[in-house]
Simulated scan of single mutants.
Amino acid sequence: MPTRRLSITVEDVEVEVILKAIKHAHIRVSPPHGTVHVSAPLGTTVGEVRSILLSRLGWIRTHQARFAASTTFVAPMMKTGELHYCWGQPYPLLVREVANRARAELRDGQLVLAVPAGSSKDERERLLDRWYRRQLQLAIPSVLAHWEPVVGVQSSQWGVRKMRTLWGSCNIKAARVWFNLDLAKKHPESLDYVVVHELTHLLEPSHGSRFAELVARAMPDWEGRHERMSQSIFDPGIWARR
């Protein structure tokens, strides 16, 4: 797949840009240093990228300030005592070694990982990811059933994926929608917003004024939900601190 990479500065913000075969531009502010990345369709000019960034400069600065004020992100080691989130609530991790089947569950206010002796960090992460996937698979059908008649469109199929920069995506032609695995860590209202967002794309592919009008018609408080959801994927408990 052809790509083009470049670095630009917008006011005092340094930005890494990648142009590739995608339909829409996306901005990502990454922890721990608030690094800004933009992915944009091939053929997008530098001037167009600058305009996109200028329109979101306040949003970018807000997130950079939050990262600067917070402690440096440390990747979880999947050990007892760490905090992990489910539906916006923090749970201390309890790792227990067992001789029978590995499993994850919420019990007595803890997120319990029952794992074989000597299990690795990666094995524990995969087990936890499977558990998060199951939480979403249980939640999504009823959320879709609620919002599809509100938006006025029906999806043909849905699924769960690990995504680095998107909370959801869709195949408009097939009416298929996908949801980020990490939504299981967010407050349930984030899942509602992503469902409405992706269903709306089945009616309007762009992020233009018609798209915004359709989202607002279905979910008048979408802007507040979007802002909270857009916090770092590594800080899914932002709702719990409101």
Rank of each mutant, 00 (worst) to 15 (best):
A139Q: 14
V153D: 00
A40L: 08
E223M: 11
D122N: 07
Y132E: 12
G159D: 11
R217E: 08
E198G: 06
D122L: 12
R4M: 10
A184I: 12
V195Y: 04
Q135K: 15
V98G: 08
L128W: 13
H37W: 02
P149K: 05
M78P: 01
S120G: 05
G88H: 06
H84T: 10
S156T: 11
E227M: 07
H33W: 05
P141M: 04
T71W: 01
A69K: 13
N171T: 08
H146S: 04
S232K: 05
F234E: 15
S155Q: 03
N180G: 10
P2E: 12
W158V: 08
T44R: 04
E105L: 15
M219V: 09
R161A: 07
M163H: 07
G109P: 11
D221I: 04
H33D: 14
V151D: 00
A117R: 14
V151R: 03
R96A: 13
H187F: 09
R66N: 05
T72A: 13
T3A: 05
E148L: 06
G88K: 04
L181A: 10
A145P: 00
R134V: 08
V177Q: 04
W178Q: 12
R61M: 11
S55R: 15
R161N: 10
S119W: 00
V15A: 00
T45K: 09
T71S: 14
R176M: 02
A174F: 00
Q110L: 13
H63S: 04
Q135W: 08
R210S: 06
V196I: 12
L203E: 01
L54H: 13
P205F: 04
F234L: 14
F179V: 08
V151P: 05
E82C: 10
L127M: 09
Q64I: 10
G47N: 10
D221F: 03
G208Y: 04
D235W: 15
R210P: 00
P188V: 09
I172H: 00
V177D: 05
A99P: 00
P116H: 10
D182T: 14
W222L: 06
R210V: 12
S190H: 09
R228Q: 14
L214W: 03
R161P: 07
A69M: 08
T72W: 03
R133F: 04
E11N: 14
V13C: 12
V177K: 02
R50S: 10
K186F: 01
G88T: 09
L111K: 08
V160Q: 06
R107D: 14
V13P: 02
W59F: 09
Y132N: 11
G237Y: 09
R124V: 05
M229R: 13
